[in-house]
Design a protein around this nucleic acid. Structure first.
Lengths: 250, 250
DNA sequence: GTCACATTGTGACGAAGTGTCAATAACGAG
DNA sequence: CTCGTTATTGACACTTCGTCACAATGTGAC
């Protein structure tokens, strides 16, 4: 029985190793540069072994997506300790989301790609439900926060806010902002010339949303830019320092 | 000289034909089922000719993306004739966006995929700037509408709204809502069990955003669900009828 | 220690797809 | 009709995916 758990551990370790390699390859040679053969070559294992872990190439992405979400969850959990209003905590979630996207650009692209049909069509159901589970955990954090805001009256009861609907709105906003930001940055979009500031776009957008929910204090009652800075200092100082030194973690 | 324009016309026609085939293939066999070989086989032309039109497979998607945006623009232009406030017109844009996504599900997936790195990395620069140009046209429609709202005072000057920033927010929201809706519908997401209603999610989300901008009349001052219905009847009756009969147009 | 059995690993291989290019065909001006 | 130009073709070289018969290794009973 002991040997079994040891073996299982070894397999789990190898899986992480393979994922490290996959991520490294993607960072080096771009998204299209990831092939199963290259993973095989760079690892000390053979193709068959790699395919023992992942049913297909898309499953590798799925697994990376799960890792990505575990990392995100870690960032979001710190928010519990943040001394601030519920709205400030929601903004902290947005901060964490953006931080994640900057710190792990390759992983972020993986998450984005997972919403795309050509990937989803091919993933095995085991992997894709695993992604859903992780996703639900993140969604749960946001739902809980919004429910708390309603309970405390930060979001007036008269707004009749459904926590699920509001969470979906916030998620949509964050997801869309990130997806379009990275696209806008690279291209000759109208926004580039219009002084588009990707740094604060998410703060701005989430503030609009919260104001729409009538989530007190409103953005004209409080300086959320200051909150934004404070979140960075108090919750994510370590990660910001890494970014300063251009230490991107895939 | 006349022969040249005739020839050019023929080539343009053939390009449209090839795109029709590509779309048909995607609708039939899924996104991953699209191959250059199949396009070749189903058309009466050879591989070389197909590659004369499109530098690579991703260029086909790019071209479809442009077609997709031309169709969208057509939908949005009708809004000029809509008798309503600026905010109602913004909601009409959201309506058009959602209508487009329902009427052309395959094309919608193409647009979504274009925001993804594995596609973007491979597209030729000519095609991708063409996508940007089309995109800018759509963005321009929204910017103009928001500027008008500010000029009329529907959005109070005190909000200090930048039309570009607000457009980006609206675009992010619409894009994110659509991307996540289609993902949520298929999967065992928390939202499914929570009575997620994809039909009105975009209306709800855009209303939140407009409320956040303090775009008058606010959603508690007017029944925008009624507006939503009116938009369907007055602007998009034909398209709705098609949807009723399950006539999806790729 | 060893033997039968179970599990895990291997890499050559077939299938499928991409993009190229030398050869061929069609075109049109003179 | 002829000849240079341009468009078209499909065989080919190359890449990649995913499989499977076989090899190697690990396990536990005796």
């Amino acid at each position: 029985m002991n040997t079994k758990t040891r073996k299982a551990q070894e397999i789990a370790n190898r899986e992480e190793l393979l994922l490290d390699i996959a991520l490294e390859l993607m960072a080096e040679t771009g998204f299209a540069g990831l092939t199963m053969d290259k993973i095989t070559q760079r690892s000390q294992y053979s193709k068959g072994t790699v395919y023992n872990h992942f049913a297909c190439k898309e499953d590798v992405l799925c697994a990376l997506c799960c890792r990505s979400m575990r990392l995100q969850i870690e960032l979001y959990q710190r928010i519990n300790d943040f001394a601030g209003s519920t709205r400030e905590k929601m903004i902290a979630m947005a901060y964490g989301y953006r931080l994640f996207n900057r710190l792990y650009p390759t992983l972020s692209m993986v998450v984005l790609s997972m919403k795309t049909p050509n990937i989803m069509e091919k993933t095995s159901s085991i992997r894709s439900t695993s992604v859903s589970e992780h996703e639900n955990k993140i969604v749960g954090i946001a739902v809980k926060l919004i429910e708390e805001a309603v309970a405390l009256g930060d979001i007036p009861a008269s707004q009749n806010v459904d926590a699920n609907a509001a969470t979906f709105a916030a998620w949509s906003m964050a997801f869309g902002t990130n997806a379009l930001s990275s696209a806008v940055v690279h291209k000759s979009s109208k926004f580039c010339s219009a002084g588009f500031d990707s740094q604060y776009a998410l703060l701005y957008n989430v503030n609009l949303l919260c104001d729409g929910l009538n989530w007190k204090p409103l953005s004209n009652q409080q300086d959320y830019l200051a909150t934004w800075q404070r979140i960075g200092q108090e919750l994510y100082a370590k990660e910001l320092a890494m970014l300063e030194q251009n230490e991107t973690l895939y």
